[in-house]
């Protein structure tokens, strides 16, 4: 039986009828047209399907759509403010922290969660915070550097 769920997606209220079997990732991509979460492994290992639910990164390939009833979901489309990219998005862009870009939404969302909880992480903490997000192009170094650069900059701003 279908169930109507209410949630916010990138700050906007949404309501949609979902079947219990619907996976959150499929619902976001196929029914709501939000294409930034991607299906890499479909089993929780790669991080490309990550979304923020109430501020925490979760694997949308391992969630039923009905489970987000009442929650606040953020994808990378919702990170910037007033048409401006977030500091992480900007720095990833400036530092060339991605090549094909397939992993970037998951990386940036994971880094967003990390910096919200730990504004000045060590290099090892950044690695641990991003673990489970696989990148096949960059070799990770520019990604880790970009996250550290953002954390340093925000530290200077204090």
């Amino acid at each position: 039986m279908k169930k109507t769920i209410h949630f916010t997606l990138n700050g906007q209220k949404r309501s949609i009828d979902v079947a219990p079997t619907e996976i959150l990732l499929e619902m976001l991509r196929e029914r709501l047209g939000v294409k930034s979460p991607k299906c890499g492994c479909d089993r929780g290992d790669c991080g490309t399907c990550s979304v923020l639910v109430n501020g925490r990164t979760l694997r949308s390939c391992l969630m039923l759509a009905v489970e987000i009833d009442g929650a606040a979901v953020t994808t990378i489309e919702g990170l910037g403010k007033d048409g401006e990219m977030s500091p992480l998005q900007k720095t990833f862009h400036e530092r060339n922290a991605f090549q094909c870009g397939f992993c970037a939404p998951g990386m940036i969302l994971s880094a967003t969660e990390l910096l919200a909880r730990n504004p000045e992480p060590t290099r090892d903490e950044v690695k641990e915070g991003l673990a489970g997000n696989l990148c096949r192009c960059t070799g990770y170094t520019p990604i880790i550097d970009a996250v550290l650069e953002v954390s340093r900059k925000s530290g200077e701003g204090k």
Binding site: G44, G47, T57, G129, G132
Partner: peptide, 11 residues
Amino acid sequence: EKVASVGIRNR
């Protein structure tokens, strides 16, 4: 801390 990754541990 040794269980999988943040995105899994959150759930």
